[in-house]
């Protein structure tokens, strides 16, 4: 017979005293005596991990039996395939390269994306719409780079040619967007924290969908000279 081991409850030794200061609206704060139910990692988590790893391994085994990894002909530096495509997770950038100069698609966009995603948790509450909105803008604005450039070109061709190299309109628009997002976040329309969070979540989802769409377009809808083709063509 095994002896039953039970965890001894810790005695309440809180020396603080509390007085009523006032009433506020909202949920009561979580306190220590509402502690969540805990279970031991062994066997509860360990068994699930083994199961998950087993399922993953079997799935990989089946997929690897059914589908072969691609292997094309020997590398030939003299024979450029048309189109030459980057790995699928870089295709969103390559797709943007179709709309804007390499400085934007190859440098500005990835840098802004990575930096914005990194700083995202440091924007709290209503300010979360700033990074999420900027992420979306960083994908969308470069698509209109050509359009903006055409407009400027019709007014001042020499100036347009110069700024095209440096992608200045895109950068200017992105900075404007960031400032606008800050103003929007601090405006009274964001006073409701629930609403602000909902908006930032939606902005992030749309950003992810755009990224996904660019990858799918690059993978399945781009043919020679990066022209649009249907997958069945």
């Amino acid at each position: 017979m095994a002896t039953e081991d039970s965890v001894q409850p810790v005695a309440e030794t809180d020396p603080k005293e509390y007085g009523l200061l006032g009433f506020v609206q909202g949920r009561p704060p979580a306190v220590a005596d509402q502690e969540e139910e805990r279970v031991s990692v062994y066997p509860h988590l360990i068994s699930r991990e083994f199961l998950a790893f087993g399922v993953m391994f079997m799935t990989l085994l089946v997929v690897s039996t059914l589908f072969d990894a691609p292997l094309e002909e020997l590398a030939n530096p003299g024979k450029t395939p048309n189109p030459a495509k980057a790995p699928w997770y870089f295709l969103s950038l390559q797709e943007l390269l179709h709309y804007s100069p390499p400085f934007i698609a190859g440098f500005v966009v990835p840098s802004v994306l990575v930096l914005t995603v990194c700083t995202l948790p440091f924007f709290r509450g209503r300010l979360l719409v700033v990074p999420t909105g900027l992420l979306l803008a960083t994908i969308i604005v470069p698509m209109f780079d050509g359009l903006i450039w055409n407009v400027i070109h019709s007014i001042a061709p020499g100036f347009a040619d110069a700024i095209r190299v440096y992608g200045l309109p895109t950068i200017a628009l992105l900075i404007l967007t960031a400032v606008g997002l800050f103003k929007w976040a601090l405006s009274s329309s964001m006073d409701d924290p629930k609403r602000a969070e909902r908006i930032s979540t939606r902005l992030f989802i749309v950003f992810v969908l755009f990224l996904l769409a660019l990858v799918l377009i690059g993978e399945y809808f781009r043919g020679p000279e990066w022209k649009w083709v249907w997958p069945w063509q």
Binding site: L71, K85, L97, A105, G106
Partner: peptide
Amino acid sequence: LPWDQLALWAVTVGTNMAGAIP
């Protein structure tokens, strides 16, 4: 690493983007 056409040109395209850093 497979050193086939897919590998060579995907890496060529990818590293060309790195060349865009000012």
